[in-house]
């Protein structure tokens, strides 16, 4: 990979200062970024590691909100959110494999916004906000298409706040080699209605399936989405599945998530 300078700040302020440099980029757990750099698809001049910033780590729940530090690993979320938000803990505990979960971070996953990543579905499905060094960005405004987010240059995700629903579940149809979702659905039922977030399917990245949300808000059962159909237009097609196949999976995984949520 190309050479770069690795900086290891211990506070958000130091990190933000380092990120203002030319070609600087944050480094979470590096589970996506490092393989990308090995392929020379990314060539940052400076990598600003978040792993030494204590204030960006940890999981806490209060007032119906789960707050996760941006540099918190998937493994920590899987363990520490298990009692307060089990559906999100299960999502985190199903990412990659144990060694990947010990490094990969929630902030890194959300900032990357891979169209098949798990966390974007968890955040968009839960509703909540992305907290950065400068502002709070609502989940509905954060994701702006494949690998694109509302983050500005040099902006750092310091924490993520998930609204804890009455019940929720994540159903993932895993691509067996990569363990990314071929398509997955995160369904959350709150007093305001139901949210359904789909990842792995659309060329635009994670999205809310609003027709299913409406149907499920009046009848929270898997049967409620039976009559709906998903347009294959704009769905991802690759060697693992056609757009029509993924459109079908959207419905199947949503039903499975509803059933799992109970």
């Amino acid at each position: 990979m190309y050479d770069f300078e690795l900086v290891k700040p211990t506070t958000v302020e130091e990190a933000v200062a380092a990120l203002s440099g030319d070609e600087a980029q944050p480094l979470g757990g590096g589970q996506t970024l490092i393989p990308t750099m090995k392929q020379r698809l990314a060539m940052p001049g400076t990598l600003v590691s978040t792993s030494g910033i204590a204030s960006m780590k940890g999981v806490s729940a209060s007032g119906g909100v789960l707050t996760v530090g941006g540099a918190t690993t998937h493994g920590t979320v899987a363990a520490e959110a298990a009692s307060s938000y089990p559906a999100l803990a299960a999502l985190a505990g199903g990412i990659g494999d144990p060694a990947v979960r010990n490094r990969g971070t929630v902030g890194g996953s959300l900032a990357n916004n891979d169209p098949a990543a798990c966390y974007p579905a968890g955040l968009l499905g839960s509703g909540g906000v992305v907290v950065t060094n400068t502002r709070e960005i609502a989940a509905d405004d954060f994701f702006q298409g494949m690998f694109t987010t509302a983050l500005e240059e040099g902006e750092l995700i310091t924490a993520v706040k998930f609204n804890i629903p009455e019940k929720a579940a994540y159903a993932k149809f895993a691509q067996p080699a990569s363990r990314f979702p071929l398509t997955a659905a995160f369904v959350a039922k709150t007093s305001d209605g139901v949210r359904v977030a789909i990842t792995g399917a659309s060329e635009e990245g994670v999205f809310r399936w609003t027709e299913a949300e409406e149907a499920l808000s009046s009848n929270f059962s898997a049967d409620a989405v039976d009559g709906l159909s998903v347009d294959a237009d704009g769905m991802i097609g690759d060697i693992h599945g056609t757009p029509a196949y993924r459109a079908h999976l959207v419905k199947v995984m949503t039903k499975r998530a509803v059933t799992a949520a109970g």
């Binding site: 290891k8 590096g30 589970q31 490092i34 990947v100 010990n102």
Partner: peptide
């Protein structure tokens, strides 16, 4: 796979300085 501070990690996907 090695252990860093007791946790399994993939040593090919972590910088030594980390």
């Amino acid at each position: 796979v090695v252990h860093v501070n007791g946790e399994a990690v993939k040593a090919c996907t972590m910088f030594a300085a980390e």
